[in-house]
């Protein structure tokens, strides 16, 4: 029973981790929280659902199109809500981004309706049976996809020229400009990667729960943000670890204490972390800046 549930927890945690990465990467570079990030997650799922249900496009293609559109949307958020306010006071930027977030949520509600939409996916692959533990293929798919995405990101940041430029920009953007790095380009790249990851997470979320709604980004976004802070904001590996940890804590809490307090465990953990480890599990922006 425990291992059965454990697969649930870590696949949920992996989705939080994917979403947390976007918060942490954007924070690492511009030192601001992207409050519209949860909406990108929601839009990724909705675009994909839309291609599948209206145009009858198979999931892999629909997902690819959905991710591309959500990425475009993420880049647009940077252009519209952040860039014109690069030198404005922080609270002005926060208000601008909150505005974008509310706008996107309401647009989704107007276009797709406020009620739940069914997100049906049938992989047609039998579950994996390990002794008494039965793991549905869906869970393996969710966890596997997340691991592949996060591992690719880790390699990108560690090994490629642009990945290193990203870390350099996060550490000292002015010095990065002095190396001939176009910091605006790096910021766009950061939003693009974060948004693509959020869209994947949104689609996986939809695959997991078989339903989507315009408010799904708010709750998941808050938790992923908690995961990012828990891991050490600005630190990519911290976001990954924080997400997985949060998934497990939430799962253990709802399984052994009460599922009514599901969300309370996540935020309780965040509060404890802020009190006892304010720089997060791995420290602020330590390895993955």
């Amino acid at each position: 029973m425990f291992w059965q549930q454990f697969t649930n927890w870590i696949s949920l945690g992996a989705m939080y981790a994917m979403l947390a990465i976007g918060y942490t990467m954007v924070y690492g570079i511009i030192k601001l929280i992207n409050f519209a990030h949860g909406e990108i997650f929601m839009c990724g799922a909705f675009f994909t659902w839309w291609f599948m249900s209206v145009f009858h496009i198979p999931l892999p293609v629909a997902a690819l199109l959905g991710i591309m559109m959500a990425t475009g949307l993420g880049i647009a958020v940077e252009r519209i809500a952040y860039r014109p306010l690069r030198n404005a006071p922080r609270f002005a930027v926060v208000i601008s981004v909150l505005g974008v977030s509310i706008f996107l949520q309401n647009m989704a509600r107007i276009i797709w309706g406020a009620e739940f939409q069914v997100f049906e996916v049938d992989f047609g692959i039998p579950p994996l049976i390990l002794g008494t533990v039965i793991i549905p293929f869906k869970k393996i798919f969710i966890f596997g996809t997340s691991v592949i995405c996060m591992a690719s990101l880790a390699v990108f940041v560690k090994k490629t020229y642009l990945g290193k430029a990203m870390r350099a920009t996060a550490a000292d953007w002015e010095a990065a400009e002095m190396m001939g790095i176009n910091v605006n380009m790096v910021i766009v790249l950061t939003f693009a990667i974060g948004s693509a990851m959020a869209a994947v997470a949104g689609i996986l979320f939809a695959v997991n729960y078989n339903s989507i709604d315009p408010y799904m980004g708010f709750n998941a976004g808050m938790k992923a943000f908690a995961a990012a802070v828990l891991g050490g904001i600005g630190n990519i590996y911290g976001a990954m670890l924080g997400g997985l940890f949060l998934g497990v804590v939430e799962g253990v809490g709802s399984a052994y204490i009460s599922s009514m307090y599901r969300d309370a465990f996540a935020f309780g953990l965040l509060i404890l972390a802020l009190i006892f480890r304010p720089k997060g599990l791995l420290g602020e922006g330590k390895t993955g800046e």
Partner: peptide, 16 residues
């Protein structure tokens, strides 16, 4: 760049 290695710092110098 404090948390980049020396090699990575030099690579950043050659970014252009």
């Amino acid at each position: 760049f404090a948390r980049l290695t020396i090699r990575e710092n030099l690579e950043m110098g050659a970014f252009i």
